[in-house]
C-alpha cells in the first residue's frame, strides 16, 4: 500500500515536471516555427448552419491560404462573445461577424476594419413570425404576447428586431407576456414558435427563406407578419496590425482574396448563401452602433 502510494506520488511528480519542461521546449520550437510562417487565424460567428459551416471552413481556409500565401487556420467558435474576445486579444486575424458583433469588436479594437460582405448584407432584413391564426398583424400587437429573440449577440435575431419593436412604442422588457427569451440560434427561434413554446419571434430573413424552401418549418403553423426595413449586417473584419505581423500589404491581399471568391470555390459560399463578396467599410455600421448604444448594449 505504502509503496503504491509513493509510486503514485513520484509518478505524478515526475509527470508534472516532465509536462512543465516539455511545455518550455514546445514553446521554443513553436516560436521558431512561428518565425517561418505565423498562423493566420480566421473565425466565424456561430450564426446559422454552424455545424456544417465549421466542418467545411477548413477547406475555405485552405483556399484562402492558397490565394494569399498565408498559413490560414480556422478556429471554430460556438459562442459569439468568445469570438469577439478572441478577436480583441489578437488571436483571430480575420472574422466573419454579424452587424452587432462586428461593432463590438471594432469598438474593442478601433483600428480593425470591416472589409467585405455579401451583396445581401447591404440591405439585410429580419422577419417577425407568429403562430398562425393569432391576431397579430403589426409590431404593436405584440403586447402581452410571449416572444423569443435569437441569440442575444445577433443583429438580425435580436438587435434590430428589438429596435423596431421599441420604435413602435413597446418596451420588450415589460410589454411581452413574461420576459423575452433568447433562443440562441435562428433555427431554434422558428422551431420554438412552431412548437408553441413562444407565440411570436424574430429572425434573420435568409434563414427563414431557406427554412421555408427546404420544408424545415411547417408553414401551416408559422407565418410572417412583419418584415423590417433594410439595414447593414454581416461582414468580414480584419484585425489591426496585419501588415506589421505578416508582411506589408497583407491586409490588401486578404481583402482581394475574399473579393475574388466565387460561388463554386467552396461549400462555405453555398452555406452562407453568397454568390460573391463585395467591398464594405466601417462607416456602413454607424447606424447599428447607434442602435446598440441606444439600447445600452454598447456603453
Amino acid at each position: 500500500m505504502k509503496k503504491w502510494l509513493l509510486n503514485i506520488f513520484s509518478i505524478m511528480l515526475i509527470m508534472s515536471l516532465v509536462a512543465c519542461s516539455q511545455g518550455e521546449d514546445s514553446t521554443k520550437t513553436t516560436d521558431e516555427k512561428d518565425v517561418k510562417k505565423e498562423v493566420f487565424n480566421i473565425g466565424m460567428i456561430p450564426d446559422q448552419n454552424v455545424a456544417d459551416l465549421n466542418r467545411s471552413m477548413e477547406d475555405f481556409a485552405a483556399i484562402l491560404s492558397e490565394k494569399t500565401d498565408l498559413n490560414v487556420k480556422f478556429v471554430p467558435a460556438v459562442d459569439y462573445a468568445a469570438l469577439v474576445t478572441a478577436f480583441e486579444r489578437g488571436e483571430i486575424q480575420l472574422a466573419w461577424f454579424g452587424g452587432l458583433t462586428g461593432v463590438q469588436a471594432r469598438s474593442l479594437v478601433p483600428e480593425s476594419e470591416a472589409i467585405a460582405q455579401r451583396p445581401i448584407d447591404e440591405k439585410f432584413q429580419s422577419v417577425f413570425i407568429k403562430q398562425k391564426g393569432l391576431p397579430i398583424n403589426s409590431l404593436a400587437d405584440l403586447k402581452d404576447v410571449s416572444f423569443t429573440f435569437g441569440s442575444e449577440s445577433s443583429t438580425s435575431g435580436h438587435l434590430m428586431p428589438r429596435y423596431f419593436i421599441m420604435e413602435d412604442g413597446l418596451n420588450p422588457e415589460s410589454d411581452f407576456k413574461g420576459k423575452p427569451n433568447f433562443s440562441g440560434s435562428h433555427d431554434t427561434t422558428y422551431k420554438l414558435v412552431e412548437s408553441g413554446a413562444y407565440q411570436a419571434g424574430a429572425l434573420n430573413i435568409s434563414v427563414w427563406e431557406k427554412a421555408v424552401n427546404e420544408g424545415l418549418v411547417d408553414v401551416n403553423k408559422v407565418e410572417v407578419f412583419y418584415t423590417t426595413p433594410p439595414y447593414f449586417d454581416y461582414n468580414w473584419t480584419v484585425n489591426k496590425g496585419l501588415d506589421e505581423k505578416y508582411g506589408e500589404g497583407t491586409k490588401d491581399k486578404v481583402k482581394e482574396a475574399i473579393l475574388s471568391m466565387s460561388k463554386d470555390d467552396s461549400e462555405v459560399m453555398t452555406l452562407l448563401q453568397a454568390d460573391n463578396f463585395i467591398e464594405t467599410k466601417n462607416e456602413n455600421y454607424q447606424a447599428i452602433e447607434q442602435v446598440a448604444k441606444q439600447l445600452g448594449i454598447i456603453k
Partner: peptide
C-alpha cells in the same frame, strides 16, 4: 459549450441547427 471543442461543442452545434 464556451467553445473549447469536445462532445458538448458538437452537441450544441447540432442542436442549434436542429
Amino acid at each position: 459549450f464556451v467553445g473549447l471543442g469536445g462532445l458538448g461543442y458538437q452537441i450544441q452545434l447540432s442542436l442549434a441547427d436542429l
